[in-house]
Simulated assay, not measured.
Amino acid sequence: MSPALRHATGYGHAPCHHGEILQGVFRDPAGRRCAGLVTLPMDGPGSRAEFARGPDTPAGVVTVRPGDRTKAARAAVLAVEECARRGGEAPCGGELRLLGEVPVGLGMGSSTSDVIAAVRAVADAYGVRLPAEVVARLAVRAERASDPLMLDARPVLFAQREGRVLEVLGRRLPPLVVVGCALGGGAPVDTLALPARVWDEADLRAFERLRSLLRRAVALGDAALLGRVATASARRGQRALRHAEFDTVEGIAGRLGAVGVQIAHSGSVAGLLLDPAVPGLRHRVRGCVRALEGEGVPVTRVFTTVPTRAAFPTTKEFTSGPAHRGGRRPTGSDTPRRPARLPAL
């Protein structure tokens, strides 16, 4: 092994998302039931990782900073095994450093972002290029369920507990402008405390219908149809989450001409979805912001699913209100139990 390889350091990055457009139970290509989701991508916050190989450190020993990022540490160990095998080397330990800007516990994929950034940093340190399906497999092994952040921006139905794509729904989502907000005051959701979801055949038929409609919305670039799907999925998610402000948010969306609402099915972020082709977009966005803040629902960020120079030229952050009295992502457990103030995204 060359001296350069003995002390190689690699770097990785992964984005986050803004909750889900659709989440439920679906049939896979073999006709088997499995849980699946379609996330709403968001540029901006993410996790960055640096992995320094330690040739004198035993295999399986990875020191992580901050020390609570245990899922990312597990992912690094698994990635070392994979990359060393592919490179014909003996695995060793190392040091993993993470810098995350994704709020924890709000359903934005913070742990998956950490995990994927860690895997990519290890791969970079070994000079190995891991296919997305391998990264997905490692992510699921590290955290039991993973968001599809290792994939490109194409909308996919993803089996989060198995780390595989059930269906590529199309090339890109219809253009949308999203007025993001935080339900429950931005307090993290303890997903382990939620009641277990038991899906029956009626649920399966309903979700497959929504899947079909979402496929059509993507194919036609139909923002209104996508909004219908997201709203229906959000309503179903409310059976477990029971956010007190959800009806208020949905009412604002209907009153001010949004095409629908979406939520994080394992967190507290939500979004009002607007069609950027509708006249008076900026007026509608401002109206949504004022209405949400008037009801005491913190507004986090307005963003778009299209490139920033397209229909909605800039991403505007709203830096007033309780959702913005904070700094970067706090250190804490992978599944925090305390309320957290949402940083300005």
Rank of each mutant, 00 (worst) to 15 (best):
A270I: 12
A217Q: 09
L149G: 07
V128T: 13
A136N: 09
R284C: 03
P322K: 06
E81G: 10
A258K: 03
A4R: 14
G267M: 05
R172A: 15
A240M: 11
R172G: 10
A136I: 01
P3W: 08
R242M: 11
P58F: 05
V156R: 14
G271H: 10
R197S: 09
T191I: 12
P91D: 09
H18W: 13
G280Q: 14
G271V: 01
P330R: 04
G326R: 13
V102A: 01
P91E: 05
W199I: 00
Q23C: 03
L281T: 07
V168T: 15
A90K: 08
R97H: 13
K71C: 06
A118N: 08
A270L: 12
V302S: 10
P175Y: 04
E208T: 08
L342R: 11
T331E: 14
R255S: 15
V177Y: 03
A277N: 09
G294T: 11
P41A: 09
G251A: 13
L149N: 07
T314I: 10
V156F: 08
I21H: 00
C92E: 06
D190H: 08
V178E: 11
A123W: 03
C92F: 12
F303H: 08
P322E: 07
R120D: 06
A340L: 15
G321T: 02
R171Y: 01
V297A: 06
T63Q: 11
L176E: 05
T308Y: 10
R32Y: 02
E167M: 01
V62W: 12
D114I: 03
A49P: 11
A145N: 09
R53V: 09
R338S: 13
R301Y: 07
S320T: 13
V229I: 00
A340I: 15
G31E: 06
T191H: 11
T70D: 10
T335D: 15
G260A: 05
V38F: 00
Y126F: 14
